[in-house]
């Protein structure tokens, strides 16, 4: 294009310039279509976990510009001022405290064979930031709850249930001992199955399901901060930092996978098995999103 014709806004355009502009317009249109197609192809392509995490961070920063990153482990209370006041009052006498004490007792009590949890978790109880992690030998995502049961079974003890019951205090104690550690999920590059597990978890997160046709993202990305009835929808950044949670609605403390189950039921989707492959992969993806956020479990929620 000649510089002479570039002054598109001038009224005295030469006729051949108009022609040129017409060609230019068509070319631009074609380019736009190509770009659009490119864009579509691009979104269909797999994004890296770091790109995923960055997109989530950007999304929430745009939506809640005044909320600093370190607030996200507090869930909906990072963005809901009224709910936060109640929560801070509850946190003065934390309802999860008895669970921590009970869990410590379990930790200190030896199995029938004389061994203890310490024999499995050589770094001690404060190891929450090491989970979930990819286990190359087993070819699956290992969560802390699963590791506890693998330890028990290796020592001739019965596996604990995954949603409620005695596993909760043990997890609460271990979470408490891990406070201050930073979420650091690693997707090892020496085993492509690890990335596959992450991708599966991501796929689960974005898939609309249930009669109500919601995905995790519908509530926790698209509509975060808005209310279903009086419930403020929480951001996914920070979703995994504070488990197990004492939930007033439950009247007790429960696990992350119990919460997954409840979320799925709310949208009338048949829940997956607690600690089954789908939920473990979801935990892998979801925890990755919180990389860099401080662990603050156990938690209390409405």
């Amino acid at each position: 294009m000649s510089g002479h014709c570039d002054g598109g806004l001038r009224s005295n355009i030469e006729p051949n310039c108009l022609e040129k502009r017409e060609i230019m317009k068509k070319t631009l249109n074609k380019m736009a279509i190509l770009l659009l197609l490119g864009g579509v192809v691009f979104t269909a392509q797999a994004t890296t976990p770091e790109e995923d995490r960055a997109a989530f961070v950007k999304h929430y920063k745009f939506r809640f510009p005044d909320v600093p990153m370190e607030e996200y482990p507090n869930g909906a209370y990072a963005i809901d001022k009224i709910g936060r006041e109640n929560w801070e009052a509850i946190e003065e006498f934390p309802p999860y405290e008895p669970f921590i004490d009970e869990g410590q007792e379990m930790w200190d009590t030896s199995f029938a064979n004389g061994k203890t949890y310490k024999d499995c978790f050589s770094d001690g109880p404060g190891v929450a930031s090491q989970y979930p992690r990819w286990d190359k030998k087993q070819g699956m995502v290992i969560t802390m709850a699963l590791a506890i049961n693998q330890c028990r079974e290796a020592n001739g003890e019965k596996a604990l249930k995954y949603k409620k019951g005695p596993i909760v205090p043990l997890l609460a104690y271990m979470a408490f001992e891990s406070r201050g550690q930073v979420t650091n999920v690693v997707i090892p590059e020496d085993d492509p199955r690890a990335m596959e597990a992450y991708e599966k978890g991501k796929k689960f997160y974005f898939t609309r399901r249930g009669q109500l046709n919601f995905s995790c993202a519908t509530c926790h990305v698209q509509n975060t901060g808005l209310k279903v009835r009086t419930e403020v929808l929480s951001p996914s950044l920070g979703h995994t930092t504070h488990w197990p949670v004492y939930r007033s609605k439950w009247g007790t403390a429960g696990t992350l996978h119990r919460r997954f189950t409840g979320c799925n039921r709310n949208i009338r989707a048949k829940p997956m098995k607690a600690q089954g492959e789908q939920y473990r992969n979801l935990e892998y993806f979801l925890t990755y999103l919180s990389n860099g956020l401080e662990l603050n479990g156990p938690g209390a929620r409405k």
């Binding site: 979104t43 269909a44 994004t47 790109e51 960055a54 997109a55 989530f56 950007k58 999304h59 991708e199 991501k202 796929k203 974005f206 898939t207 995905s215 993202a217 990305v221 698209q222």
Partner: peptide, 11 residues
């Protein structure tokens, strides 16, 4: 069956 990132999440 294929993952589709919704339009509201911008990369």
């Amino acid at each position: 069956s294929e993952l589709r990132i919704p339009a509201y999440l911008k990369y």
